[in-house]
Nucleic acid binder design. Structure first.
Lengths: 154, 154
DNA sequence: TATTGTTATACTCTATAACTATA
DNA sequence: TATAGTTATAGAGTATAACAATA
């Protein structure tokens, strides 16, 4: 019963250079979060992007579709379908903006407010589970480091 | 000249609850890395997934297609197309494994070795740029924290 | 002219189910 | 029966270009 064969098939194979790359670990960690997020949202119809929109609109009632997208890094063209989806299920209300008749002002419906609140509860449990291995201080550090990286996008 | 209007359109709108969620910041940071990775790889035809495969195969010559996928979190079915792409451009060699005629043993071609080496150079510059705001110690911390999170996937 | 939202489109990544050939 | 690879397919995220209405 040898501990490791030359061609490892039971243990995970070493990753090579990849293992030292921040980008790789970001991708895997983000993917793991995404998968568990989907599981946590089961039955609600919410996804990461859609919840993001609910959150921003909830925090900025009457915000323009474009501005909401910009704050989330979502392109104009892609916002259309996403807003349609939220509107179609009655979570979001869109009306031509009074000051600028090109723009659409977004607001949560009462159902949208409820959905935001209920999802947030589930998400907090999901984050708690995904971050169980990290102390409160480590979680703060992690967010701070990630925020620095995001900043470099713009 | 007021600092912030009630309906912010020039500044970025606040994100609401989203801003305290690790999952959100992971997604944005990972996306930023992905975009810059693509820019850094321009002209090579390499993408994050494909480079990952090159790296693992390079570190484990003769590894089975399935084992390579498992170590990267890529499903069997999706490996097929990816390996085809690498094989089609002559970066990767696949041969029926001697010990198990169901399996395919993967190896880098000389061109694959070169591609791996050259991409790695570009990637190191790309990571350096994306992480310019972080000290060496912060980078180590970040990788360590991310690794803990990934572990929770399996 | 520039901007808001829209349509059309295409590419990548990921996921599931069913098949084949070997073991 | 189980495993390695394959095929087919579908959903989701993101990207670009071109257009209409409004500013």
């Amino acid at each position: 019963m040898n501990i490791a064969s030359l061609n490892p098939e039971d243990e995970e194979a070493p990753l090579g250079a990849l293992d030292h790359l921040v980008g790789y670990h970001l991708r895997r960690a983000s993917g793991a979060f995404g998968t568990d997020f989907a599981r946590a949202m089961e039955g609600t119809g919410m996804r990461q992007v859609l919840f993001g929109i609910l959150s921003v609109v909830g925090a900025n009632p009457g915000i323009n579709q474009g501005a909401a997208g910009r704050s989330l890094g979502i392109q104009r063209a892609n916002m259309v379908t996403l807003i349609n989806q939220l509107s179609d299920v009655g979570l979001l209300d869109r009306q031509t903006a009074a000051e600028d008749r090109r723009a659409l002002a977004l607001r949560l419906t009462p159902a949208g407010e409820t959905m935001l609140r209920e999802c947030l509860e589930r998400i907090e449990a999901h984050e708690e589970q995904m971050l169980a291995g990290l102390t409160a201080s480590e979680r703060r550090t992690l967010i701070a480091l990630l925020a620095k990286i995001e900043g470099r996008r713009l």
